[in-house]
């Protein structure tokens, strides 16, 4: 459904995309996970036919993004990262306008947008600019769906949205996927990765790994610990200077740690931390989440 081959894009002095390749199957919910500046938006803009790649080719619904952009534009729904609807028009007016320029109407595709539309319907006469962040994103999704596209491109749809709205938003996406829609979604939130069928972990213009979220976690072969102490900052500093440390990253109030020789170094570490006089020290073995995998891949990436 989406086929990206060796796409590169350079902006003056930075390589935003460096030979990106991946495919997304029909009816798949595919996530692009990566921090800000990874190149997610550039990738989306190329696939949405807004930007030309310097190199490589991409096909959406078997149409070439450069030569057959007109066909693509009729068949995709695109939600840019920045809220891009008319703030001075009401919810209803925005929807009607976007339906009309695709020569359709809300009624024609009501089935498609029903669940989401019902959530925003109570505010349908309110101006889009006066909606809450979560509502705005729901409206934008609605507008992107109103012409019944086959592929949906959602560029960071949940950034800056509260936890409840984020959850509702993802529920809508999964429902759409179950109806057979192909969805490409990007997010900086690692916890959302597990909701996708497959994810691509992206960093500085490159894809580090493409796999199902569970498979990525399974691949993480190292032993992982969460360490906590009264002074997290000093703890982090001390861990970084420990001679057998492999990786250590702050994760909430914990620090996630892997060691060069795994379990074998643990006793040394305990001793070391006690010498450094950390109070309320707790060390627990934990199972990795996507973020740990991401950090691990990123470190390897930098080392190579």
């Amino acid at each position: 459904m989406i086929e990206v081959r060796e796409i590169s894009k350079r902006y003056v002095d930075i390589l935003a995309l460096n030979k990106i390749s991946f495919t997304v199957d029909k009816g798949e919910l595919f996530g692009i996970i990566g921090p800000d500046g990874a190149g997610k938006t550039t990738l989306f803009r190329i696939l949405a036919t807004l930007l030309l790649p310097d190199d490589g080719s991409a096909r959406v619904n078997d149409w070439d993004v450069i030569k057959q952009y007109k066909k693509i534009r009729k068949n995709i729904g695109y939600m840019p990262g920045r809220f891009s609807l008319y703030q001075d028009l009401s919810v209803q007016e925005n929807l009607e306008f976007f339906a009309s320029i695709f020569h359709t109407s809300i009624k024609n595709n009501y089935e498609n947008i029903q669940t989401i539309y019902e959530q925003i319907a109570p505010f349908k006469n309110r101006k889009a600019g006066a909606l809450s962040g979560g509502m705005k994103q729901k409206l934008a999704l609605c507008c992107a769906l109103v012409h019944n596209p086959e592929v949906l491109f959602l560029d960071e749809p949940t950034t800056g949205v509260d936890a409840v709205s984020r959850q509702e938003f993802w529920e809508s996406l999964i429902e759409l996927k179950n109806k057979g829609m192909t969805i490409l979604v990007s997010t900086p939130y690692m916890d959302e990765a597990s909701l996708c069928d497959r994810v691509a972990l992206m960093q500085t213009g490159r894809i580090m790994e493409i796999n199902a979220p569970e498979a990525i976690i399974q691949k993480f072969s190292k032993k992982l610990w969460a360490i906590k102490a009264d002074n997290t900052y000093h703890l982090l500093k001390d861990l970084q200077s420990f001679q057998h440390i492999d990786t250590c990253f702050p994760f909430g109030e914990n620090i996630h740690v892997t060691l060069l020789h795994g379990e074998a170094d643990m006793n040394d570490l305990r001793k070391y931390l006690q010498e450094k006089q950390h109070q309320e020290l707790t060390i627990t073995t934990i199972l990795p989440v996507i973020e740990d995998c991401f950090m691990d891949l990123m470190t390897e990436d930098i080392l190579h």
């Binding site: 807004l50 534009r73 695109y78 920045r82 891009s84 703030q87 976007f98 320029i101 507008c143």
Partner: peptide, 13 residues
């Protein structure tokens, strides 16, 4: 400036 151009560009207009 408000970004709606981007949204319109992805339509058959």
């Amino acid at each position: 400036e408000i970004g709606t151009m981007e949204q319109l560009n992805v339509t058959p207009i």
